[in-house]
Write a protein that binds this DNA or RNA. Sequence first.
DNA 1: GTTTTTACAATGCAGTCGCAACGTATCCTG
DNA 2: CAGGATACGTTGCGACTGCATTGTAAAAAC
Lengths: 204, 204
Amino acid sequence: MPKRVDHGERRKLIADALMRVAAERGLEAVSLRHVATEAGVSAGMVQHYFGTKDEMMTFALAVVREHGEARVTRAVAALGDHPAPRTLLRTMLVELLPLDEARRADGRVALAFLAYTAVRPDVAAGLHRETAALLGFLADQIRAAQTGRPADHRVDPDRAAVGLLAVLEGLGIYLLGGHYPAETALAALDAQLDLICGPAQPAG
Amino acid sequence: MPKRVDHGERRKLIADALMRVAAERGLEAVSLRHVATEAGVSAGMVQHYFGTKDEMMTFALAVVREHGEARVTRAVAALGDHPAPRTLLRTMLVELLPLDEARRADGRVALAFLAYTAVRPDVAAGLHRETAALLGFLADQIRAAQTGRPADHRVDPDRAAVGLLAVLEGLGIYLLGGHYPAETALAALDAQLDLICGPAQPAG
DNA sequence: GTTTTTACAATGCAGTCGCAACGTATCCTG
DNA sequence: CAGGATACGTTGCGACTGCATTGTAAAAAC
């Protein structure tokens, strides 16, 4: 083999450039040449690492998801060994909200891809599995958060998980659109957690 | 004046074609020629009624919103004069969910426009006002639905409205992506209404 | 009647698109 | 050192884009 280059690294470099273009000018501004320029490489190189544009898009979509996953993993790890379920939930969800510019950029790309995959159902299969797994995890945490609550304050964990994930998605979208400030979204998220888990326990 | 033609009608004809193209092939497939073909008219005519593509897009966005508004108005009117707040809320929200093919089409277009406006903040100003008005209305209904509930079952209407609207948006998106079936979304919506308004009153 | 204004159709243009087809430089293998 | 495979860069092609321009038919205004 000649000239050893890390394919994964190059692809990631290109995908990062794609995401920058998409975040700033929308997904329809993503072209081989624009991405190449943004990445500071030739258009031929982009073509070398991604035979087709769709391939490039699919890879970039995976990168966005990995961003989110890494963010959540890191934030959850910082919580220590056995965080309270509600704390764990809140930490995860807040991390997925577009509250700073980095997450806003990721969010814009994710939103664009959402619209993209809505018309290309074949690409969406992986997302379904991820959603199902996430829903399962949320439901588990909600179940755990409810132990010891009076029966008439309990909710169905599966439905609550669907609702909670929907709230997250919706808040993210309204935040991206600038419909209301971060505090409003955070207040709504906390209110939702209150509804599901009961009011936050005062420390002690 | 010559050859009197209803400008609004023509523009609506074209916008409808635009929405069909966007729903089937995504917003990036929307071009003057595609829209013209879909509408069964010449590209020149499209250009005659919309000097620029952006003008056409903006108009189409307004049409999408009117669709939703008309749907809600009709459904709410069918409820009669003084529906219970929870019934009113549920009727409104269900009507906005992409549960049949017509609403799925509208939803896809709305989603595409959401991503479109996320990068064009100037276009989004109208949406902000609409969101604020909708939030106010939801909060009013939630407030009304809570009269007579025990104090420890009440929630802040404003936060609950933000959460409810976010749930609606999120459920719509997951439905459009086919992440789960309609029943799951409806169950989650009802669970959310249960959390906010208390369990549905059995008839009588 | 003529004139003017509107409604459309057709064509053309400069730019961009994805992608194929090269060419070449580089490095590993034998 | 030759041979071959890989990693690019360059160029060009056909299709498409939004839009300006032009031409024409028809109806209102005079």
